[in-house]
Nucleic acid binder design. Structure first.
Length: 246
DNA sequence: GTCCAGTATC
DNA sequence: GATACGGGAC
């Protein structure tokens, strides 16, 4: 092996070690998170649309409304009128928009698997992802949430918290693309759906409680862990994200 | 960059 | 009252 190849290999091993350290530190504090908190795979798909840029507490109300109206299934949503769906999901916000998105996704999945998601469990993840991205209202995070949480495929979900946490620890550029961040995880961690599942859930927990727009680093479980792995970049990131806190 | 929108939390 | 939320389309 040449010198540059060796360097690449050790850089990759280091990245892997850092990513594992972050998982371990977060898991010790918050895990296991038991995500996705849906009862059925269809409920997870529906929740994936409802939770777009929306707090989960509000999504739960919308899901409860759909359940009460017997509309918490892909076939039911496919049959239902858009304005009826919109009224039911009001608590989740963006209700007109999300009603159209739910209808589009329900149509696609009824067409694809008769609304029976278990039939997709052995589909090719990359191909299915490409198809999902063609559906109105399904972007990368929603598509990947479906693949990972409803279909148990080893696809890493990136969200706003993930981006923020990585950027603040100097592991990614603040404006890194979704695909870039996903590649960081998937090329450094073995494909493992349960591990990816737990990892994303843990990042959300860290983001929600500590890595907020105004960060609370003091008792963050990643503070010591990341300091150990990337002392310099963490300190650097801190300078830019915590102007008033040491 | 702007729009979509109700709800919780400070 | 202001901020933030488990994004995506245009």
């Amino acid at each position: 092996m040449g010198n540059s190849a060796k360097k690449e290999t050790s850089a990759r091993a280091r990245q892997t070690a850092i990513l594992r350290a972050i998982f371990d530190a977060a898991f010790e504090r918050f895990g296991p998170r038991h995500w996705w908190p849906g009862e059925t795979d269809e409920e997870i798909v529906i929740g994936a649309v409802l939770t777009q840029n929306t707090a989960w507490a509000n999504v739960e109300k919308a899901i409860a409304n759909l359940r009460e109206a017997r509309m918490l299934s892909l076939k039911a949503l496919d049959r239902a009128g858009e304005s009826e769906v919109a009224q039911r999901i009001r608590p989740a916000g963006y209700y007109n928009l999300k009603a159209r998105r739910l209808k589009a996704l329900a149509r696609f999945l009824v067409e694809r698997c008769d609304g029976n998601l278990s039939r997709l469990r052995h589909a090719d993840p990359a191909a299915l992802r490409a198809d999902l991205l063609q559906v109105y209202g399904v972007g990368p995070e929603t598509a990947d949430s479906i693949l990972l949480y409803a279909l148990s495929m080893p696809i890493f979900v990136i969200d706003a918290y993930t981006r923020r946490i990585l950027a603040r620890h100097g592991l990614a550029r603040p404006n890194a693309s979704y695909d870039e961040l996903q590649k960081l995880f998937q090329s450094n961690l073995a494909p493992d759906a349960p591990y990816y599942n737990e990892y994303h859930a843990l990042l959300v927990a860290v983001g929600h409680r500590h890595c907020k727009p105004t960060p609370r680093c003091a008792d963050c479980p990643l503070y010591r862990a990341a300091l150990f792995a990337t002392r310099r970049s963490h300190a650097e990131a801190q300078r830019h994200t915590r102007p008033e806190v040491v």
